[in-house]
């Protein structure tokens, strides 16, 4: 999949920063800045930025290479439970296979997701690394 600069520009706020949508109707929280609550459909929502800190709950090693992704295979994809209580799926970086373990404390970092090689736009986003 090749992103376009226009598509990326529209979603960059949710790519660059970890927002949480808090619902004023049902009280539940969801990852990403969203206009409506994904659980009850209410638009009585407000947004907070996550501290970026969390715990790695589960992970897997991935060999599949997306078109235009950086050459960083194999990579680790994990489920992180943020301190705000919300789960998010993301890439785990800065760690070897023998060091990864469930329950490990991680923090959000800005990294390259992909780039339109060799002269296209570079797409940045949030990944996680051990604290």
């Amino acid at each position: 999949m090749r992103l376009s600069p226009q598509q990326f520009w529209r979603i960059r706020e949710n790519q660059y920063r970890l927002f949480i949508t808090v619902c004023g109707s049902c009280g539940r929280k969801a990852i990403l800045k969203r206009p409506v609550c994904p659980y009850c459909g209410s638009d009585r929502v407000h947004h907070v930025e996550s501290s970026g800190l969390g715990v790695l709950e589960s992970f897997t090693k991935v060999y599949y290479r997306r078109n235009s992704s950086e050459d960083d295979l194999p990579k680790f994809i994990g489920v992180v439970r943020l301190t705000e209580g919300v789960r998010v799926v993301g890439e785990i970086v800065g760690v070897g296979a023998d060091e990864l373990r469930e329950g490990m404390e991680v923090e959000a970092v800005l990294r390259r997701y992909a780039s339109d090689d060799p002269y296209g736009v570079i797409y940045y986003g949030i990944k996680f690394k051990p604290v």
Partner: peptide
């Protein structure tokens, strides 16, 4: 630096 790091990502941190 790792392959997905550059001056912008390190500067951000």
């Amino acid at each position: 630096a790792e392959e997905d790091e550059d001056a912008a990502t390190m500067g951000w941190y």
